[in-house]
Amino acid sequence: MSQQDVHILSAASALPGPAVDNAALARRFGMDALWEQWVEAFIGTRSRHLALDLESGRLTGTLADLAEEAGRKALKAAALAPGDIDAVVLGTATPDRLMPATVNVVADRLGIDQVRSFQLQSGCSGAVQALDVARQLVLGGAARRVLALGGDVIARFYDVTRDLRRADPAELVNFVLFGDAAGAAVVSAEPGPGSAAVRALFTRLVGLGREPGAVLEWFGPADRDSDRPAATEDYKAIEEHVPRMTEEVLHELLTDTGWRPEDVGLLLPPQLSGRMTRLISDRLALPAARDVSVVDDAGNCGNAIVFLQLEQALAELGAGERALGVSIESSKWLKAGFALEGSAR
């Protein structure tokens, strides 16, 4: 075992409320059955969880609520107390407020104090960025155990009174792609029962000169009446670039680890939509890998999605079994990946 390994002791997730299927969305936004069939065929996501009451438009939970729940579960699964944690890192695109930072609210609720804390503003690759910061803290000796968190509440950008029949496709797609969730993982200098060693991990900005593929606006008092949509997605650009970027990440991870494609037992692919996930997995063609995918039922829940995948992967990863994970962020084009190897149970 390398002296440079760090270990993921546990992973956990929190989803708000019951699942909201495509039929429920269609009823709320006045869309017909053909729209529901289009979502099933071309998006491939069956349901998602929302921190929102669709009828009233009232938020029913916050990112801090979800991250607190996920953090508690991860600590319990790792058999750790709040005082055992040396640092807390949160990746999110949708903090509850600009200040105080949501990471500090969550730490306070969990009873974690007198530690380093970091909040990373990023799209879905922020989950891997949070794991990267946690890993570097452990490798540098600044921490023995770090609680890494990720999550988003996209529903706060929903306008439930909107007539989606008049919406631009770049805006419409967000109503079916995304869900709300949070996740957590404990990163440690020492292994534990059922843990996984991190054999490789990287995140990289690759968007030089490239237009954003996703935009999430912030409105203050001066521009709150702007007619700009709060969230847009260039789905065609994403369909063009994400599969190729995923292949690049996979090849880099295999090179870094020295693994062969047939050595990989689990694949944690990007989770934009059910349809795209399946297309990407088929394109990668890892001969022995089982997919760890949650997007069909949880939707694309941003910075939570990698943690939802990790929770499932740790439960399946046998001793010595190998897993590769890929996350691609389209906002300004980032690619991220990690390689895990199962420890003895």
Rank of each mutant, 00 (worst) to 15 (best):
Q3Y: 10
L9S: 00
L15I: 01
V20K: 15
A24Q: 08
A26Y: 03
L34M: 11
L34S: 15
Q37G: 05
V39S: 05
F42L: 13
I43G: 02
A51G: 00
A51S: 02
E55W: 08
R58M: 06
R58K: 13
G61Y: 13
T62F: 03
L66R: 03
L66I: 02
A67L: 10
R72W: 13
A74F: 00
A74P: 01
L75N: 14
K76P: 08
A78P: 12
D84M: 04
D86T: 04
V89T: 00
V89E: 01
G91A: 02
M99H: 12
D108V: 08
L110V: 14
L110N: 07
L110D: 05
D113M: 13
V115P: 15
F118Q: 13
Q119S: 11
L139T: 00
G141D: 01
G141F: 00
L147R: 05
L147V: 05
G151Q: 09
G151W: 06
A155D: 02
A155V: 03
R156A: 02
V160R: 10
V160W: 03
L164W: 06
R166K: 14
A167I: 14
D168A: 11
P169K: 10
E171A: 09
E171T: 12
V176F: 12
F178M: 08
A185I: 03
V187W: 02
V187H: 00
P191C: 04
L205A: 08
G209F: 00
R210K: 14
R210W: 11
G213N: 06
A214D: 13
A214K: 15
L216K: 11
P221S: 10
A222T: 15
S226W: 07
A231G: 11
K236E: 11
I238S: 06
E239F: 13
H241G: 05
M245Q: 08
T246H: 03
E247R: 15
L250A: 07
L253N: 15
W259E: 08
R260Y: 08
P269H: 04
P270L: 04
P270N: 04
G274A: 05
G274N: 06
R278D: 07
L279Q: 15
A289H: 09
V292D: 08
V292C: 09
S293V: 08
S293P: 09
I305G: 01
Q312V: 04
A313C: 05
G318D: 07
A319T: 07
A323T: 14
A323Q: 12
S330A: 08
S330M: 15
K332Y: 05
A344D: 07
